[in-house]
Write a protein that binds this DNA or RNA. Structure first.
Lengths: 361, 361
DNA sequence: GGTCTCTGTGAATCAACTT
DNA sequence: CAAGTTGATTCACAGAGAC
């Protein structure tokens, strides 16, 4: 996974224009990209008052202003194109937005021939209410997770996610609260440092789901460095790009104070994605050569009996089938996992060939 | 709300090409459009199997195939343009999709200068599992709700929605189960009639939120007629367009068997959106003229005392303020609703002027 | 110290009517 | 039509302060 040209970027925040800095990064060097670009909110010019008469301070930052969708699209197309170049073939990308920009992002992602894996909804448990009762409360943000092409292999720690979700498959709607309290960075005046700081729990799930230990995660809109802080904690590397020096200073401080989770911590199994390590069991030919399958005949639980030849194939009417394919003959076209379907007989006992291969290991 | 040219379409399903049929409908005649257009599912050539070996029958109907995104975009642009023409200025539109098509829809909606009100996530409580454990379970579908332009007034039954949500503002993530059981239409062979039949609960919420009683709701991809069935139940009118005669036959049967909710049903208040009826209370001058405010002085809860003149203005230092504006003086610039801020005193009792006007009514 | 109350605040395309 | 006036609206937390 090493890339010498990448060393000078690793675990650093680059000050500068997003596009220019992306261009400096070596091709095919990044494992994961997380991008939370400006949303282009287009709020009105008037003031929005809270019900108690106070003003509501929404996002009015210069960095969120664009002249038109056309300008926004052009910008999006450029940074996504750079992301394609620097991403490893087995890497993947997350982007984030609301209805203001998410359709621009998704459309361009598809036009650039990226391949969408999932669309995720972040359901906020404590969104800002709609003070005037004009519409449904905007209680969600949206994420898109995608690869460079349809055939890309990508990291997905399926079992880790399942363990995080009461042993059930993790779905595409995630509930988290917004970033507040101690986690929310304050400036020297005690005001919120950044208008749109993201919660660490969200980044934690993204990183645990789609990276391996020591992977390199790039965030081209680094802000206050949530991506970097969580990456460090979880023993991943980060690269940040940010054009506001103030944010960088706070982010560097923040990350410096993060402790990596200890290797003695029971949670360290999660960090290694231990549950998702691929275990290589012996193949059927290995078992035969090592004389682990003592019988020449296999049985299913309906007591059908078949002959297993020295090539590891099941012969039926002089035609050779794999142990899996052979299930179709006996199960009306249903194609099942042969390891769990076929048994040998020892006296009156049926022993699954799947148990045999796992015992060998 | 009557439009004579519309009579021949009302509560009927038109057999034919979506675009051609849309063109026949009069301009600015429709209150609400609900559109669940064909999805652009790319299942690829591989067959997907359930764990038990049965083939998974996903969406692979002919009507779902398009040559490319370009074709899909072109088609989307055309039917949305027709929708703009036939929609009343105060009408609104819902579209629905998954990540395969929702970004195409949203992007084009914005390009056509529609104005998005909300994006809604339908969280499925019982989604199809991901059989191979290759990604997060797709447990959501997405809806976009929008008007013809930024300044469009539209129907939103805010309080009705609040009542449906434990008296709290309804958010943008909706939990419903997928359509199954008795609700799911079967064909004569007992198989599911349509691959993407929508649950009635979903349509119920959409219709209750964004239409008034007797409104006309158009569904250009009518399918098995969920929109029509729910519209009828809730005392709304529908127009359906569908190019598959088989679906139309089943849908007509289905809708014929729907009973409108009785006017004696306690739920009928919801149908009329009674909670959202605008109530006109007397104004401050009316109350003074009719001598309903017996005192010349008003108090706030801090016991500040002000003089209310015969013009209904509060005089402070010889300057006249409205009852609302006057709150700014006593609340450090906070501009509050005067009706709930000012009281008269009867003995030791404070009586809110808001209570007085509501009693008068 | 513990419990209760009060206050502050978050990616917001946040009004309708009269003069 | 622009400017001014009237009036209808909030939820989950965290943290500070009161008792």
């Amino acid at each position: 996974m090493k890339n010498d040209n990448l060393d000078k970027f690793i675990n650093k925040i680059k000050l500068g224009n997003c596009l220019e800095e992306l261009k400096k990064i070596p091709s095919k060097s990044i494992d994961l990209i997380f991008a939370d670009p400006p949303y282009f909110m287009q709020t009105g010019t008037g003031t929005l008052y809270r019900i108690n008469g106070n003003k509501y301070n929404g996002v009015d930052d210069e960095w969120d202003k664009f002249d038109s969708y056309k300008e926004y699209d052009k910008f999006t197309r450029k940074w996504l194109t750079q992301c394609r170049r620097i991403l490893k073939d087995k890497g993947s990308i997350w982007v984030m937005g609301t209805f203001h920009n998410i359709y621009r992002l998704g459309y361009i992602i598809q036009d650039l021939n990226f391949w969408i894996i999932n669309d995720i909804t972040w359901e906020k448990t404590n969104p800002t209410p709609n003070f005037r009762g004009t519409k449904f409360v905007n209680s969600n943000e949206n994420l898109i997770w995608f690869t460079k092409s349809q055939n890309s292999k990508f990291t997905f720690n399926y079992k880790t996610m399942k363990n995080e979700n009461k042993k059930k498959q993790m779905g595409s709607v995630w509930k988290f609260s917004i970033c507040s309290g101690k986690e929310r960075l304050k400036d020297n005046n005690g005001n919120k440092l950044h208008n749109t700081q993201k919660p660490e729990d969200l980044l934690r799930r993204i990183i645990l789901a789609s990276t391996k230990i020591n992977d390199v995660i790039l965030d081209p809109f680094f802000g206050t460095g949530t991506t970097g802080a969580v990456a460090k904690k979880l023993h991943r590397n980060f690269i940040g790009i940010e054009n506001n020096e103030k944010y960088i200073n706070y982010a560097n401080d923040r990350i410096k104070n993060v402790d990596k989770i200890s290797k003695n911590d029971p949670f360290f199994d999660y960090i290694k994605a231990k549950f998702d390590e691929k275990i290589k069991y012996p193949k059927i030919l290995d078992l035969i050569r090592e004389n682990k399958i003592k019988s020449k005949y296999l049985y299913n639980l309906k007591e059908d009996k078949v002959y297993l030849n020295s090539e590891g194939k099941i012969k039926i009417n002089n035609v050779k089938y794999s142990i899996h394919k052979a299930t179709e003959i006996f199960e009306n076209g249903r194609y099942l996992n042969g390891w769990k379907y076929w048994y040998i007989k020892e006296g009156n006992n049926y022993i699954s060939i799947d148990d045999i291969r796992k015992d060998v290991k």
